[in-house]
Design a protein around this nucleic acid. Structure first.
Length: 778
DNA sequence: CAGTGAGCGAGCTTCCGCTTGACTT
């Protein structure tokens, strides 16, 4: 009996394929790459053609052992990793690491996971494409060179543990540049004029807007003056058919965008939920840049539409990927079985599935036919006119199922606006006309999802890295999801009603932003530094340019290490020069003035632990004074006065229960200290203004929440406690934490139960218990 | 968790793309 081993990248895929192939085939998964450059060493031999030094990471050793054994037992090994650059490299690494031979190895690829597609692949094997493998090696080596040469420059010149890379540094640049645009933005006022009207012989009302924005209050008043007592007549009426087409099926990027807008998911939330849908077999692979649907999928979607909605709703469409650098190893993201309208699962899973289902169905549906009517309303004696528009849906088409949203309007509706019947020359009356003072809007800050969209447009990053990249730039403290408080703004509303013109002042808050990406001081300083000294890497077209080179390598036109060598010979000396550079000021340093008390200079800069203010310099015997900046303060905008205030801390508020109560600012922000214990000060207070009473209240609050934390203690052993933490109920024994198995009734836990759980986990084979916390995540 | 930041110098940090669990308090 033939004995075959098929290796794919993902275990969920392996499970499905095994079913198609029968018992002569064993299907295993490589879980992505099995080999990489060493995590910490540079691992590139720059002297010898940039030869990469690969190793199998510790967590992959066991898997590789199993794969090796299975390969040795098999008569034929089929390498079925994805058909793209990374997939080809995975196949090659497998070939090398498993010690395979050409006689018993075949490379196969398939584009959809269906039985015929896989059988076809097996009948048409090919060899490993070494040019494509080399293109991947070039990509890997280039990213390592950029990341591992640039980051140490930042450690030296700015502060430790920073990072730079081909993808992340450009992502930060986009956000920094947008913030600079916002800072430079000058809002201009204008007046928007809207009339509420009705036809002379009909009571149905409609709105009409002036076709021009007016410059100022005088212009608005003069227009209303002209409208007072005027007889309006209908001018041109135009009826135009309008066609709307559905959006293509989801890719990773568009799924992340729509899930953010429609469901409020973060980018990584979307990926986690999608992963679960994929693993339960509900959807196709969720990391893809392809909008393509398999022929089988199109067929079943077509049937679904014809039977449930009718033939007139069906329009078979083939989509083509237009984004830069797309590699299309997978299908678009779609339901595995389109006739499954609902799935079992959590609320989040259901909602995401529904979104994917609707988008997929809509992508194969007919255009919506809309009739748009615009009617001019003439103002006698003026050049301006009012314009009324109506939209009537003649045929809803795909709108019946799915409406795509956009960043600039969250008001996606299919609301019809109908105009009353009217014809040229008809007389219309205005019930009221209002001119409202408006202001041009500053450019919008990026959200996670809109940043992903932008990166994809620029061809930077891959479906599997969008979410991690966004996490990285936040973990490095380059950007944060900010909350910008809005400012109060007055605006004027001028109304013409019943022949009277009146003006009123109203007010609104403006510029408030929540959950948008805002650069930090560190992010700005690092970005400006990189832009000054490494403009090539920071160029938005850098990735696109090198992608063209990778393509040439894949086509066999160029040797991979020639391209790398060219880049390195130019890049490495730049790194060396910048490292040696003696900078006159610390990067990002700014002088604020002189401290009136001591007469010493006051400056702000980025210190080892973030932004700080400094009084005096380090020359001679005198030690300068330091204070960290507070949340919301920036080295770019802080004033001398605000900076000096930071030195009023720590300060003593008074006494409580016989011990001193003081406030200060530490590594984790403002705190109250009392009797050796620390309590964080919430955002609504500042340590400068907080009173003794408020501080005592905070101390008491902390005590009650601490008391609630302990659910159970046992007289048998005071060191054993059942606690309620952020992730649910757990057991704490001798400073170690233990998970309680799922489904346990925590109310009825006895001392013996707890001891048993502890013993179980302590003896669990091969499960290393880590006592130290993982690197602190902020 | 929680008085760092100069300067001395040890030893540490870091990339992008492929893939999932194990684990967190």
């Amino acid at each position: 009996m033939p004995n075959n081993l098929v290796i794919v990248e993902s275990p969920a895929k392996a499970k499905t394929i095994e079913k198609f192939l029968g018992k002569d085939y064993k299907v295993m998964s490589s879980y992505g790459h099995i080999r990489d450059l060493h995590k910490k060493n540079f691992s590139i031999d720059t002297e010898n053609g940039f030869k990469p030094i690969y190793e199998i990471p510790a967590e992959k050793k066991e898997l590789v052992k199993e794969l090796k054994k299975a390969a040795a037992d098999a008569d034929m090994v089929w390498l079925a990793s994805d058909e793209d650059r990374e997939g080809e490299a995975i196949a090659w690494h497998l070939y090398e690491v498993l010690g395979l031979t050409p006689e018993k190895t075949r490379r196969i690829v398939f584009h959809e996971i269906t039985k015929p597609a896989i059988l076809h692949a097996i009948e048409n094997p090919r060899d490993i494409d070494y040019n494509l493998v080399d293109a991947q090696q070039a990509r890997r080596v280039l990213d390592r060179i950029v990341g591992f040469e640039l980051s140490p420059v930042l450690w030296k010149k700015i502060k430790p543990a920073l990072s730079a890379g081909r993808v992340q540094s450009v992502a930060v640049r986009l956000i920094v540049e947008r913030e600079k645009e916002i800072e430079a933005f000058v809002s201009e006022q204008y007046y928007r004029v809207v009339a509420q009207m009705h036809c002379n012989d009909s009571s149905s009302k409609f709105d009409a807007e002036l076709n021009r924005r007016l410059r100022d209050s005088e212009a608005a008043k003069s227009l209303l003056e002209a409208c007072r007592g005027a007889q309006f007549t209908v001018g041109d009426i135009a009826v135009k058919p309008l066609k709307k087409s559905p959006a293509p099926p989801f890719t990773t990027s568009t799924l992340q965008q729509e899930a953010a807008r429609k469901l409020g998911f973060t980018v990584s939330q979307t990926m986690m939920v999608a992963q679960r849908l994929y693993e339960s077999g509900h959807i196709t692979y969720m990391r893809t840049d392809s909008v393509n649907l398999s022929t089988l999928a199109i067929k079943s979607i077509s049937e679904e539409i014809s039977t449930n909605l009718g033939e007139q709703y069906l329009k078979v469409r083939h989509y083509h990927t237009s984004s830069k650098g797309a590699q299309e190893a997978h299908e678009a993201i779609r339901p595995t079985y389109i006739n499954k309208h609902e799935i079992a699962g959590t609320a989040q899973e259901k909602r995401l599935y529904e979104l994917i289902w609707k988008r997929t169905i809509a992508s194969q549906m007919a255009d919506a036919q809309i009739e748009k009517t615009t009617a001019d309303i003439i103002i006698p004696g003026r050049d301006e006119k009012f314009v009324a528009t109506g939209e009537v849906i003649k045929f809803d088409g795909f709108l019946r199922v799915y409406i795509e949203t956009h960043d600039d309007d969250n008001t996606a509706t299919t609301d019809e606006v109908t105009l009353p019947p009217m014809k040229r020359g008809d007389i219309v009356d205005a019930d009221s006309i209002t001119a409202t003072q408006r202001f041009t809007q500053q450019p919008p800050r990026y959200t996670e999802a809109s940043l992903v969209k932008k990166l994809e447009e620029l061809g930077i990053g891959r479906p599997s890295t969008y979410a991690p990249t966004i996490s990285t730039i936040q973990n490095r403290d380059y950007v944060e999801k900010g909350e910008k408080k809005g400012t109060e703004r007055k605006y004027e509303v001028i109304t013409l009603k019943s022949g009277k013109i009146s003006s009123a002042q109203k007010s609104e808050t403006t510029g408030a932003d929540k959950g948008k990406l805002i650069p930090t001081d560190v992010g700005m300083v690092v970005n400006d530094f990189l832009e000054d000294y490494f403009p090539q890497i920071m160029d938005y077209n850098f990735t696109a340019k090198i992608e063209r080179e990778f393509d040439e390598i894949a086509d066999g036109q160029v040797k991979w290490n020639d391209g790398i060598s060219q880049f390195y010979n130019q890049f490495h000396p730049t790194v060396e020069n910048v490292s040696k550079l003696r900078l006159e000021h610390k990067v990002g340093e700014r002088q604020l003035g002189i401290d009136p008390k001591s007469g010493k200079p006051v400056s702000v800069k980025i210190g080892r632990f973030g932004p700080l203010v400094q009084i005096g310099t380090a020359d001679g015997d005198n030690k300068p004074l330091f204070a960290p900046l507070q949340k919301g303060q920036s080295v770019n905008t802080i004033t001398l006065e605000e900076a000096l205030k930071l030195f009023d801390l720590p300060r003593t508020l008074g006494e409580f229960e016989g011990s001193e109560v003081s406030v200060g600012v530490g590594r984790f922000g403002p705190y109250v200290k009392h009797d050796g214990k620390y309590v964080s000060i919430p955002k609504d207070f500042t340590p400068q203004q907080i009173t003794l009473e408020e501080a005592i209240h905070l101390i008491e609050e902390k005590r009650t929440s601490e008391a609630k934390k302990v659910l159970k203690t046992f007289p048998e052993d005071p060191e054993l406690e059942v606690l309620n933490g952020r992730y649910g109920v757990y057991i704490c024994y001798k400073k170690q934490n233990y998970k309680i198995p799922k489904g346990t009734d925590t109310e009825s836990l006895t001392y013996e139960d707890c001891k048993a759980i502890i013993a179980d986990e302590a003896n669990a084979p091969k499960k290393k218990r880590t006592t130290t916390r993982r690197t602190a995540k902020k």
